[in-house]
Design a protein around this nucleic acid. Structure first.
Lengths: 294, 294
DNA sequence: AATAATTATTTGTCTAGGACAAAATAAATG
DNA sequence: CATTTATTTTGTCCTAGACAAATAATTATT
């Protein structure tokens, strides 16, 4: 039995939102403690996780809450299962291997495939496998975090790696204030890195106002930002316009994530709504930058 | 000009708390937009950061808000400056070096000093330097994140490193739900690691209820948790008692952080309120475990 | 005088129900 | 069929009050 705030942190839904859902849709209706404070059960946590995933798949609350718990579960299973061909080796990795074995396995695959193929053929499917496994109850949260932590660590090492060469153009990857959209940005950085661009990733959030100065100090060729689906479109547009304005025109600006899928057109801005576009974008960018310098 | 929620995220103070501080202490009093919603200035963000640091130094709101902005600044400077002897090399690293240079410098020091000395002579002082530099305005937030990200990455690599040996006892380091107390736990893990214990760190938050099963699956010899100062003492006590109960008695339980400094005595629980205690604790633990197995 | 137990103050989190703009959908227009 | 305009949906913010947990201050006890 947990408080509304604990619940809010676990499922990443604001307390105001939780209360108004209860008022409007009748879910989740918690028990009350002696003071009249809300107390949520483990089961409600689980059901809310399903709601959250459906939401991130594009369903809106009125659709979601029109269904009952079983209906939501069914719908989510359907959504996750449609891209079926499950890689059994990855499934085993996700479910059973020990941390060291996971490390060894992933490193082996990375070496064999190279970073780009690793991202598309291992990292992305693995993340999907984890989601699916969590959804059908075959993978615990702890296990999911364990595996994704190993993956994250491995990918970060790829960025640090060698090549402090002075001639390679450097890109700066940032998480803006209010974002926690870590893994997508990391995958993007690895892809750019494997195209031959130097990538510097700052995972902790920082204020927009400091970005231009930082970009200048680090002498980077481009700044990349990722906006999650929760980021208000209007705000994303405003942020990007402001940043584009403050930033040296020679520094490219790259925006990714669901919040900028369309509409956000801006002079001198590279939009990148899908990971799949990155190989093309990065090679083009690299040749442009090379031409510029040389 | 930012909203109350954005402010809340930037300074890590809940919206409720911000509103009630305004009501009770008259700070921060924001401007209002056309709807009557609060809008905070950059300066207020900065002043709140100072408040937050004073709070984490043990000052309570009534003392803090009895002072004006200048008084708070003075007090904070005094607090941070009393441990004076500033390492100029570290200061330069924090302020000026490029990411690659930081990496090289830190790696060099790590190699020379070994992990334990590195933690006490480099990592801890560096973190203090960053705090101080931020406080007196000579280090930007961006710079602080940049440097601490490099440090974090380097330390994490130390944990992964070699030795998947079957005979080494493994410890599991966890962040509980509602915690984001990353760096302290990481430093602790590195210290245990350098004593010869295998350390597995899961940075993402996970529910308490899943810990026992995870510990069993991974076959670890101990579980280590860190509670930040914000964690309610009562809750920490409850959590620890519950976990101790559910956990196999043979698995040790280690608790650290400001929230468990005293009082939280429990059978079969190792309390560790200061990093300095870890070398002693870890070597004792290791010999116990070796005796047990061998 | 030092320690333990009480009482008072401080502090953060919670409650309720109302309001409203931004986003998404439906409807109406060219 | 593409745009514009109305309508619904949705999340965030508002006020003001309540109360327990944590801390400080006071009193009682050894």
């Amino acid at each position: 039995m947990i408080s509304i705030q604990q619940l809010s942190q676990e499922v990443a839904i604001g307390t105001d939102t939780l209360r108004i859902w209860e008022r409007r849709y009748g879910f989740p209706v918690p028990q009350r403690d002696s003071r009249g404070h809300r107390r949520y059960s483990d089961q409600q946590v689980e059901e809310l996780r399903i709601v959250k995933m459906l939401q991130s798949l594009g369903y809106r609350p009125n659709k979601i809450f029109a269904l009952d718990a079983a209906g939501r579960k069914t719908l989510l299973d359907k959504e996750l299962d449609q891209n079926q061909p499950e890689n059994t080796a990855l499934l085993q990795l996700a479910k059973q291997l020990s941390p060291h074995e996971i490390d060894r396995d992933l490193r082996g695959r990375l070496e064999k495939l190279g970073p780009t193929n690793f991202v598309f053929q291992v990292a992305v499917p693995l993340i999907k496998t984890l989601d699916r496994g969590w959804s059908d109850g075959t993978i615990s949260i702890a296990r999911e975090h364990l595996v994704s932590d190993r993956l994250e660590q491995l990918l970060k090492e790829q960025l640090a790696d060698p090549e402090p060469s002075a001639t390679t153009p450097q890109l700066l990857f940032l998480t803006l204030n209010g974002e926690w959209h870590k893994i997508g940005l990391l995958l993007a950085a690895v892809l750019f890195r494997s195209a031959g661009l130097g990538c510097l990733l700052i995972h902790e959030e920082l204020p927009l106002s400091e970005v231009p100065q930082l970009a200048l100090d680090l002498d980077v060729a481009a700044v990349a930002l990722s906006f999650s689906s929760h980021y208000p479109t209007r705000q994303a547009k405003k942020d990007l316009a402001l940043l584009r304005n403050k930033l040296d025109p020679k520094i490219r600006l790259i925006a990714g994530g669901q919040a900028v899928q369309d509409g956000v057109a801006l002079q001198n801005l590279i939009i990148c709504s899908e990971l799949e576009q990155i190989p093309a974008i990065s090679s083009k960018l690299l040749s442009e930058l090379r031409a510029q310098t040389g």
